[in-house]
C-alpha cells in the first residue's frame, strides 16, 4: 500500500478552482517531484498535503492517517500533520531561537522527546546537514543555504512519514543552491519519502522516482523521470523544460 494516497483532491479559493480532482500516490521511500509552470498549483498541492491550505474536497491519506477533507476538524488536522513536515521556500526558521533550539522545538513542543534526547537528536541531524558547529548561532547570522539546511534538519528531526519541500532553492543565490540540493539528495539515499516542488529540472531528473507535471490546477502528466522528462516525453513538458533554464548545481 502506498504511503501517500490523494483522491479527488480539489482546492477552491474565492470560487476559483486552484486544484481540480488531483489523484496520485507516493510509495514509501520514494521521491515525487511536482513540476509545472507558475500558477499551476504545485505549491498549493504541497501546502494542502500539510493542511496549511484548506482543501474543498477529497481524501488525503499519509501513513496511518486518512482524512476526508469535507469532515476535517482540529483533531484530524493535527493527526495528518503529525505525518509530515514542511520545508519552506523562505526557510521560516524561528527567528527568536538558535539553530539547535529550532531543531529541538518540534520535538519538545510536541512532547516527542525529553530535553536531553531532543538535544542529542538535534545535534545528530545538524551533523548530518553539516551545520553542527553553527548550533548556537541565530538564523539571521547564517547564509540562505545554511538556513535552508537547518530547516531541513528541523523537518527530519521528528522523523515524519514524509518531508514536503516547497521550492527549497528558489530563494537562494546560485552558489548556495548546490549545498542544499546535495543535502536533499543525501536524504533520498536514506530512502526518506519526499514530495518536492522545484524548478531545478536536472535535480528533478536525478532525485525523482515519480514526476508529476501540473498545469492549471490539474495533473497533466505523471510517471517516471525517464518517461516524463526525456526528450521524447510529452511535448508540453519538453516545451516547459525548454522555457526554464536548466542549471546543473550538483
Amino acid at each position: 500500500m502506498s504511503l501517500i494516497e490523494v483522491k479527488d483532491l480539489s482546492v477552491e479559493i474565492k470560487q476559483k478552482k486552484i486544484l481540480q480532482e488531483i489523484n496520485f500516490s507516493v510509495e514509501k521511500g520514494e521521491v515525487t517531484v511536482l513540476v509545472g509552470p507558475s500558477g499551476s498549483g504545485k505549491t498549493t498541492l504541497l501546502r494542502t498535503l500539510n493542511l496549511l491550505q484548506k482543501p474543498s474536497q477529497g481524501i488525503i491519506k499519509i501513513g496511518e492517517t486518512s482524512v476526508d477533507v469535507s469532515k476535517i476538524n482540529k483533531k484530524s488536522t493535527r493527526s495528518l500533520r503529525s505525518e509530515s513536515t514542511m520545508v519552506f521556500q523562505q526557510f521560516n526558521l524561528f527567528k527568536n531561537m538558535t539553530v539547535i533550539e529550532n531543531v529541538m522545538a518540534p520535538l519538545l513542543l510536541n512532547k516527542l522527546a525529553k530535553w536531553d534526547e531532543a538535544h542529542d537528536i538535534a545535534k545528530s541531524v545538524l551533523l548530518e546537514v553539516g551545520l553542527a558547529e553553527f548550533q548556537d548561532k541565530y538564523p539571521s547570522s547564517l547564509s540562505g543555504g545554511q538556513q535552508q539546511r537547518v530547516s531541513i534538519a528541523r523537518a527530519i528531526a521528528v522523523k515524519p512519514s514524509v518531508v514536503l519541500l516547497d521550492e527549497p532553492t528558489s530563494a537562494l543565490d546560485p552558489e548556495l543552491v548546490g549545498s542544499v540540493l546535495k543535502t536533499i539528495l543525501a536524504l533520498a539515499k536514506q530512502h526518506i519519502t519526499m514530495v518536492i516542488v522545484t524548478h531545478e529540472m536536472e535535480f528533478a531528473r536525478l532525485i525523482g522516482n515519480q514526476i508529476i507535471f501540473l498545469e492549471n490546477g490539474k495533473i497533466v502528466h505523471k510517471g517516471s523521470p525517464d518517461k516524463i522528462l526525456s526528450s521524447d516525453g510529452p511535448k508540453r513538458v519538453s516545451d516547459f523544460m525548454n522555457s526554464v533554464s536548466t542549471n546543473n548545481y550538483l
Partner: peptide
Amino acid sequence: GQIEAGQSLNI
C-alpha cells in the same frame, strides 16, 4: 511564515 512553520511542525 513563522506561524505556518509552527503549524507545519504540528505545534
